[in-house]
């Protein structure tokens, strides 16, 4: 194939069971891939864990200097926050824009476009499957952190039950917005600076760095206009037992709203992006 200038056809009306079967296949592929590289995965886990451990140590130090609590969090609650953080992080891991860049640069996308399913759908299946080995790799680390930092986590039963839902929705919010970011690669090769800006915004306004309520007031206001807090802060707070039923309902609605917005936006931009795309090779 030399050039795919044809816009991709709309999805043929796939039945729900087709769709689920496709997710299963993509998911299984992810699981098999991940289980191959056990050592590499452990290193990746350390790479992911070191970040919250640094934050946790910093805030533990501050909190202890201030007599045991800072900004409404006790030392043990900080520990709980960052340990749940690690689980949420495993779950909201999504396809980085760099992979998207690679996929276009290497000509992979050309082949993917020929499939009768939208690449977005395949990615969803893949990343859902990816969660299973990731959570398995996470478990020993989570237990270790729990023993080392002795967190205080006391959710009610209903909060525990809603947590998986919030977690799943958090994944979708982050996944879709990373995908939106990936679409930038259709227009420009020099994307690193844009990606970096995105990650800085996420760091500051998602609760990834520090619980949002500890951030200065201006940051909290800004965060309300961005999708980021629904990918870290909200699910963490749910399991930490700090979200009341009303806030929980609004939170889930906000997650759904951002997911819908992100999805519609992707569909809209995708049509433009694909017109822009000229494939070489494969």
């Amino acid at each position: 194939m030399s050039a795919a200038t044809q816009p991709v056809q709309e999805l043929p009306a796939a039945t729900l069971s087709d769709r689920i079967k496709m997710y299963m296949v993509a998911g299984r592929q992810a699981i098999i891939e991940q289980l191959q590289y056990r050592l590499a995965n452990m290193m990746f886990m350390v790479h992911i864990l070191i970040e919250p451990v640094i934050y946790l140590v910093v805030w533990t130090t501050v909190s202890e200097a201030q007599g045991g609590s800072v900004g409404g969090y006790t030392t043990a609650q900080f520990a709980g926050y960052y340990i749940i953080w690690t689980l949420v992080r495993q779950f909201n891991l999504s396809m980085g824009p760099h992979s998207f860049h690679w996929r276009i640069k290497e000509g992979r996308l050309a082949a993917e476009l020929l499939r009768p399913v939208h690449p977005l759908q395949v990615d969803i299946g893949y990343y859902l499957g990816y969660k299973i080995p990731q959570v398995i790799y996470w478990l020993p680390m989570g237990i270790l952190l729990w023993l080392l930092f002795r967190p205080e986590v006391n959710p009610e039963l209903w909060q525990i039950l809603v947590f998986p839902v919030a977690l799943m929705l958090a994944f979708f919010v982050r996944f879709l917005f990373m995908w939106v970011l990936g679409l930038v690669c259709f227009w420009t090769e020099r994307v690193d600076a844009i990606f970096e800006l995105y990650f800085v915004l996420e760091l500051l306004f998602s609760g990834r760095l520090v619980p949002l309520s500890v951030m200065p007031a201006w940051a909290q206001t800004v965060a309300n206009f961005m999708p980021f807090q629904w990918t870290f802060y909200f699910p963490i707070e749910v399991l930490l037992g700090r979200v009341d039923p009303q806030a929980l309902g609004w939170g889930l609605l906000a997650q759904l709203a951002w997911i819908t917005g992100g999805y519609l936006f992707i569909m809209l931009v995708w049509k433009q992006a694909i017109k822009h795309f000229t494939a070489v090779g494969s």
């Binding site: 290193m43 350390v46 790479h47 070191i50 970040e51 140590v57």
Partner: peptide, 28 residues
Amino acid sequence: VRVWEMMEMIGSIFQAGRWPVGIYPDWL
């Protein structure tokens, strides 16, 4: 051949250096 993860790991551990090492617990 897969040493990418190792380099990533070292890179992120290096980030710990922006805070004085004295604040970290002994094992770390």
